[in-house]
Write a protein that binds this DNA or RNA. Structure first.
Length: 255
DNA sequence: ATGGCAGGAAGCTCCTGA
C-alpha cells in the first residue's frame, strides 16, 4: 500500500499535475491540502475517472483538504470533532483497514500573531482528538502539511530561522506531543539524502539553491510503522513548470 | 534593502502563504 501527502497550493491550478502523478505513481491513497476551492466546484469526476474515490472539504481561497483512495473512503470525519473552526483543515477516512487523517496545520504567520495562538490552540485540540482516534484505530497514519520543521536538520539555514514561525520551541513541542501518542515521523525511520525538504519558497530561486524546509510529514502509528518499507520526497514535482511550492511525501507499507 | 513569488478575489491592489 502506497500512501502520500501533497499540499497542492490550489487544486484548480495543479489538477493536471495531480492526474499525471496519480497515473505515474499509482498511490493507493493521497491526502491533499490547500485545495482552495468550495465543494461545489471540486473536480470529483476527473479524479474518479483516474480510478479514485474521493472525500473533500473545501472553502474559497484558503485551506481545503481531500482524501483520494483506490479502495474507497469510509467513515469520513470532517474537521476536529467538538472544535468549532470555520477553516477546512482536517479530514479523516478509513481506507483498506487503515485510518487516514489528512491535516493542514495553521501556518501561524509570526510568533506575535493571533494566528500563532490559533495554531497552538488548534494543535492542542488536534492532538487530543488524534489520541482518541488512535485508541479506536491502532493502524493509523496522520499525513499532511504540519507547518512545523521538527528539527534543525529539517531547515536549510537554522540560524537564519531562529525566532521564526515553523521552528519555534512551542511548535516543535506540539509536534513531539503528537508523536508521543504513539506515532513515528516515518521519514526519519530511513536513511535520507542531506538537505531533504518538502517546501521551498517560490522566491529567490530557493528550490534550485536547496533552501527549503521539511514541514510535510507522514506520522505512522507504532503498529503501522513496523510495516513501512520506505518513505521519500518526490522532489521532481517541485521542478515542474508552474509547480506547487510543496513536493509530495510518499510512504510504502507492506499491506 | 523585511524585498523577492504565486494564487485568489477583486478589479488595476490587497491579503496570505511559509
Amino acid at each position: 500500500m502506497k500512501i502520500a501527502t501533497w499540499n497542492v497550493n490550489s487544486l484548480k491550478v495543479r489538477l493536471d499535475h495531480l492526474l499525471a502523478w496519480l497515473e505515474k505513481e499509482r498511490p493507493d491513497a493521497v491526502c491533499l491540502q490547500e485545495t482552495k476551492m468550495e465543494n461545489a466546484v471540486f473536480p470529483a469526476a476527473a479524479i474518479e475517472a483516474a480510478g479514485y474515490q474521493v472525500a473533500f472539504s473545501g472553502q474559497k481561497t484558503y485551506n481545503g483538504v481531500a482524501i483520494l483512495a483506490r479502495a474507497g473512503v469510509a467513515d469520513v470525519v470532517d474537521g476536529i470533532p467538538g472544535y468549532a473552526d470555520e477553516q477546512k483543515r482536517v479530514l479523516a477516512a478509513t481506507v483498506g483497514g487503515v485510518r487516514l487523517v489528512c491535516a493542514y496545520v495553521p501556518n501561524g504567520q509570526s510568533l506575535e500573531s493571533d494566528k500563532y495562538r490559533y495554531k497552538l490552540d488548534w494543535l492542542g485540540a488536534f492532538t487530543a482528538w488524534i489520541g482518541s482516534e488512535l485508541s479506536r484505530h491502532p493502524q493509523m497514519a496522520v499525513l499532511g502539511d504540519y507547518n512545523i520543521a521538527p528539527a534543525d536538520e529539517d531547515v536549510h539555514d537554522p540560524a537564519a530561522w531562529v525566532g521564526q514561525v515553523l521552528v519555534s520551541e512551542a511548535e516543535r513541542n506540539a509536534f513531539s506531543a503528537l508523536c508521543s501518542l504513539g506515532f513515528k515521523d516515518s521519514f526519519r525511520m530511513f536513511p535520507q539524502p542531506e538537505r531533504s525538504f518538502t517546501w521551498w519558497d517560490y522566491r529567490m530561486n530557493a528550490f534550485r539553491r536547496k533552501m527549503g524546509l521539511r514541514i510535510d510529514h507522514i506520522l505512522l502509528s507504532d503498529s503501522l510503522a513496523g510495516k513501512c518499507r520506505s518513505v521519500s520526497v518526490d522532489v521532481a514535482m517541485r521542478a515542474l513548470e508552474r509547480p506547487s511550492d510543496h513536493a509530495p511525501v510518499v510512504a510504502e507499507l507492506d499491506l
